[in-house]
């Protein structure tokens, strides 16, 4: 196992600031605060060479988990081993073997030229000169960063900066890569290039990747394994296929009728079928599970009793499904 987390937990004591001047003064003398649990008893095992997608809503505990795995944050309790090391205690040794990209902020020095930052990082991570040159050529081919190297980091656009940030995180060829929302706010082309490089490193160098994202297309493109997390707990751990399965395999049949919908005729048509109808102006929307009901059967039942003008069947997309899943879990 490359990553082994057992009952991993992290809490923060949070202060809710009181209002006004007197509140600020009273805040000064407050000691402990309220405990807020960010990650609650997380169990996770990741094998070398896996690409794991961490998904979940904002505040689900994804970033906190990543920060513990990278050694930036200490766990409050539980055990965590990455490559046999305790990330937080053996941090310097640990970070030599990982690469980390935060989509939200750069890890490069703001005022250095890109190539200067790369040179410095290569020095810090003790990359041999020949290897370094090869890496730069690879990054130029895959990410097109050659023309950016002489520019100061602060002058780069978001897309340019993210490509450079990814390259910077990979200079020392780390066997484990953490990507925290790496493609947030990027255009389609830059997203594609980043995903292709990550997929290639996984395929050719066996790089293990842990990715957090809101973008489910990204998960589908990159991650054979998905971990769904909320309130710091794992809700689901499996393949994208299993995720779809567990999330329901819901379908939607939208039927357009001639004239007004007759509720009596509709309920008669749907008698005994596992389906929930929603009525809108001249339209009926029917949700049903693929496993419980076949679309032709439903269409047959409907057209026997109602004047159907047009119809369409849609798969519920994964994004909606996840949102609904969270809704159910929280309810």
């Amino acid at each position: 196992m490359l990553i082994e987390a057992h009952q991993l937990r992290r809490t923060f004591s949070s202060f809710e600031r009181r209002q006004g001047l007197s509140g600020a003064v009273r805040d000064l003398f407050r000691t402990g605060g309220q405990e807020r649990v960010a990650v609650e008893g997380l169990d996770l095992r990741v094998r070398p060479g896996e690409v794991v997608g961490f998904i979940g809503p904002n505040g689900a505990g994804k970033s906190t988990t990543i920060k513990m795995m990278t050694g930036v944050l200490a766990p409050s309790s539980g055990t965590l081993r990455v490559g046999g090391l305790e990330p937080h205690r053996q941090r310097q040794e640990h970070v030599r073997r990982i690469g980390v990209v935060y989509g939200q902020r750069t890890q490069l020095w703001w005022d250095l030229a890109v190539i200067e930052a790369f040179d410095l990082l290569a020095g810090i991570f003790e990359v041999p000169a020949a290897v370094y040159r090869q890496r730069l050529e690879l990054f130029d081919r895959e990410l097109g960063i050659g023309p950016l190297l002489r520019q100061p980091v602060r002058e780069l656009s978001l897309g340019q900066r993210m490509r450079c940030d990814l390259a910077a995180a990979l200079i020392h060829a780390p066997p484990l890569l953490f990507l925290d929302e790496p493609t947030i706010g990027l255009d389609v082309e830059v997203k594609r290039r980043i995903r292709e490089l990550v997929a290639r490193l996984n395929r050719e160098e066996g790089t293990t990747v842990l990715l957090t994202t809101h973008d489910l297309a990204e998960v589908e493109a990159l991650c054979p394994r998905v971990v769904l997390i909320d309130h710091g707990r794992i809700l689901l751990d499996g393949s994208v296929g299993e995720l779809r399965e567990r999330l329901g395999g819901w379908r939607r049949l939208v039927v357009e009728l001639e004239g007004e919908v007759d509720p009596g005729a509709l309920s008669a048509a749907l008698e005994g079928l596992p389906v929930t109808p929603t009525l809108t102006a001249g339209q009926v929307e029917l949700r049903f599970r693929r496993s419980e009901l076949s679309a032709p059967l439903l269409i047959q039942a409907l057209s026997a009793r109602l004047p159907v003008r047009d119809l369409s069947v849609e798969e519920e997309d994964i994004e909606e499904a996840v949102a609904r899943f969270y809704g159910e879990q929280r309810a």
């Binding site: 410095l120 730069l136 050659g146």
Partner: peptide, 20 residues
Amino acid sequence: TFGSGYPGPARSRLGLWLRY
């Protein structure tokens, strides 16, 4: 190729800090 002046890893910790 890249006009980078990277001389390879520093020989010592101190060398690295000085380069930094």
